[in-house]
Amino acid sequence: MSLPDGLRNTSQAKNWVDSLPLSYKYSAGVSGQRFAEGLKQGKILGSKCSKCGETFLPPSLYCPNCFVYSSEYVEIPPYGEIYSFAEADGKAIALIRFQGVTGGLIHVVKRPSAGKLKIGLRVSAVFRPAEQRKGDLTDIEFFEIRPHT
């Protein structure tokens, strides 16, 4: 296909610059709301499916395996293990997994004073003081390496 006559001069080709500024306000959802309320109380909540027995973190309204409503929210002890980590801007970010739980949390890990971060290190959540908590993941200030691991 040829260009229409008179448009072979590419200096005539135009473009149009504009923007699309979009702002959003997202609700946390039913399970997200429970998760947020848990964090505020210094708890990590997961959801449990009675059909397959699996526990999920973050919690979900439904079991992604069985596609049925989750049967309950359960408190997950705040002790996990570094599944993988990355370091950027002087900070270490890790995917932290918890025993017997599907999923996990992405969070900041405080570097140990001696030694290096390693996959498999055991970590625990350090919550902010109750009055500073807002009901989101930053209510956990960071994860720290548990001693004797």
Binding site: Y26, S27, G29, V30, L61
Partner: peptide, 12 residues
């Protein structure tokens, strides 16, 4: 407006 996320509504 609903509290449910899009995924949660789709599931229900």
């Amino acid at each position: 407006r609903m509290l449910e996320t899009g995924k949660e509504m789709a599931f229900e």
